[in-house]
Amino acid sequence: MEKLPGGFYPVMVTPFKSNGDIDWTALDQLIEFYLDAGSTGLFANCLSSEMYQLSNEERLQLTKYVVDKVNGRVPVMSTGTFGGDLGKQAEFIHTMYDTGVHCVVIITSQLINEEEDNNLLKSRLETLISSTGNIPLGVYECPSPFKRLLTPEILKSLSATGRFIYHKDTSCDMDDIIPKLEAVKGSNFGFFNANTPTALDSLRAGVDGISPISGNFYPELYSYLCENFDKEDKGRMAYFQQKLSLMDAVTRICYPFSAKWFLQKRGLKMGTDMRMNHTKLHSEEIRIMESLESEFEELCGVYGIEKVTV
Rank of each mutant, 00 (worst) to 15 (best):
A37G: 12
N113C: 10
E227Y: 05
E297W: 09
K122I: 02
G84Q: 06
S291F: 15
M289L: 14
P10R: 02
D233P: 00
T25A: 04
K185M: 09
I178K: 08
N277I: 04
S157C: 03
Q264K: 14
G72I: 15
E297P: 09
E306H: 12
N113P: 02
L181N: 09
I286P: 00
E116P: 12
Y65P: 04
P197I: 14
V308D: 08
L128R: 02
L120M: 08
F164P: 00
L149W: 05
N216R: 07
Q242W: 06
F296I: 02
I253H: 08
N188W: 01
G41Q: 09
E182W: 07
R59W: 08
W24C: 01
P219Y: 00
K88S: 15
D201C: 03
V250T: 13
Q242K: 09
H94D: 08
S55F: 10
G267T: 10
P219Q: 01
I305T: 04
Y52T: 08
Q241L: 05
H282T: 04
S131F: 01
H167T: 11
I305R: 03
K185F: 02
S187A: 09
L30E: 10
R236H: 07
I213Y: 11
I305F: 08
L121K: 05
C46K: 06
S49P: 02
G87N: 04
V76W: 00
D233S: 11
S109I: 02
Q89M: 05
F296N: 02
G304R: 10
L281G: 05
E293M: 09
D208W: 10
G206K: 06
G84S: 07
P197N: 14
S18V: 05
S123G: 11
T170P: 01
G87H: 03
G235M: 13
E293G: 09
L54T: 05
C46G: 12
K231T: 12
P15W: 15
I129M: 00
S18K: 11
I93S: 01
Q53E: 15
I288T: 14
E114K: 14
V67W: 07
Y97L: 00
D21E: 14
F257E: 06
F92H: 03
I253T: 12
I107P: 00
F192P: 02
I129R: 00
M51Q: 13
V207G: 04
Q242H: 11
F257Q: 04
Y34W: 06
F192L: 06
K69W: 10
N228W: 11
H282D: 07
P256S: 07
K64F: 03
I93P: 01
M237K: 03
L86V: 01
F43V: 14
E126Q: 10
N19Y: 05
A160P: 06
N45H: 02
A194N: 05
E58G: 09
G304T: 11
K307E: 12
V310K: 12
R287H: 09
P212V: 14
P212I: 10
P145K: 14
D169V: 07
A90I: 08
Y166I: 06
P179A: 06
D273M: 04
E298V: 11
Y255H: 06
Y218M: 08
L244D: 02
V101M: 03
Q61V: 03
P15I: 15
S130P: 00
N228R: 13
S245T: 15
E293S: 13
G190N: 02
K231C: 13
I286L: 07
V70C: 09
I165A: 07
E50N: 04
M247C: 05
